[in-house]
């Protein structure tokens, strides 16, 4: 299985669970371990739906196709099983958990990765957390704040990448992590992602973004253009620049 792609999506179709209209329409995409891929596309093209379907969001229903993670079928797994298998999604809109500190949350999440009877080493955890906070340029007191509760847009996104740094996924899906960030925060967050990838070159990253701007900071190996639920073009980083100049107008849904 060592040669299996990190993620191999074949003919994936999906819709909102309560509705009839398909959002993903027989989408194909393959990512090899360690690669960074960016998916760009206009609003409504289904980019975020793809991220959520891969993470197992209950509001979406897969109507066809397959998604293999390291050769293993993903679609029948519960969201927490996918997480424990190494898949992480940075949310476009991170969710508030009042009364639960980031430290407590991450400790619980790491503990969940250990077997029964195994105990998380709290000193190691403390070190990891402090290192991750340094990377994301937040004060140590940040970890004592309740998860996303009362956070600014920038703090929420830093918190997502902070969690990624501590949980060390093997496949990270970043859903519009650049949205709502000012240029300073964008630099910090991008630097965080780049550092994590340097530390762990085997980590595969799927960036989902509307704007080319993010790709100035995180260099993808491949850029895909997604329109109307499928990938319509694939290229290198230069494709993002082309899109930036021309916009998405040329990418009408093909029939």
């Amino acid at each position: 299985m060592s040669n299996a792609p990190a993620l191999d999506i074949r003919g994936l179709s999906a819709k909102v669970a309560d509705e009839e209209i398909s959002i993903l329409k027989s989408l194909d995409l393959a990512l090899n371990p360690g690669e960074i891929h960016a998916i760009m596309g206009p609003n409504g093209s289904g980019k975020s739906t793809l991220a959520k379907v891969l993470a197992g969001h209950p509001s979406y229903q897969v109507t066809g196709g397959e998604a293999l993670y390291l050769g293993q079928s993903l679609l029948d797994m519960e969201p927490d099983e996918r997480a424990l298998a190494g898949i992480f999604m940075a949310f476009q809109y991170p969710v508030e958990i009042p009364g639960v500190s980031i430290a407590n949350f991450l400790r619980t999440a790491l503990q969940a990765r250990l077997g029964r009877g195994e105990e998380l080493d709290l000193f190691d955890f403390q070190d990891q957390l402090l290192e991750a906070m340094k990377l994301l340029e937040v004060e140590p007191s940040f970890a004592e704040r309740p998860v996303n509760d009362g956070f600014s847009g920038g703090e929420k996104k830093r918190n997502e990448i902070l969690q990624m740094a501590v949980l060390k996924p093997s496949l990270a899906i970043l859903d519009e992590t650049d949205s709502g960030l000012d240029i300073d925060a964008l630099q910090v967050v991008s630097n965080g992602v780049n550092t994590l990838h340097k530390e762990n070159p085997e980590m595969t990253i799927l960036l989902i973004t509307h704007y080319q701007r993010l790709l100035d900071y995180i260099k993808p190996d491949f850029v895909h253009v997604m329109v109307d639920g499928k990938i319509v073009r694939t290229g290198g980083p230069e494709l993002a620049l082309e899109l930036e100049k021309q916009g998405y107008v040329n990418w009408k849904p093909s029939s």
């Binding site: 519960e78 927490d80 997480a83 009364g99 639960v100 619980t108 969940a112 949980l167």
Partner: peptide, 24 residues
């Protein structure tokens, strides 16, 4: 969903939300 995406089971996630609610 957010908590499960970080690896918590449904029960663990529910317990964490409830404990957070009561925390003050």
């Amino acid at each position: 969903f957010y908590l499960k995406n970080r690896g918590l089971s449904e029960e663990e996630a529910m317990g964490l939300v409830v404990r957070g609610f009561l925390e003050p």
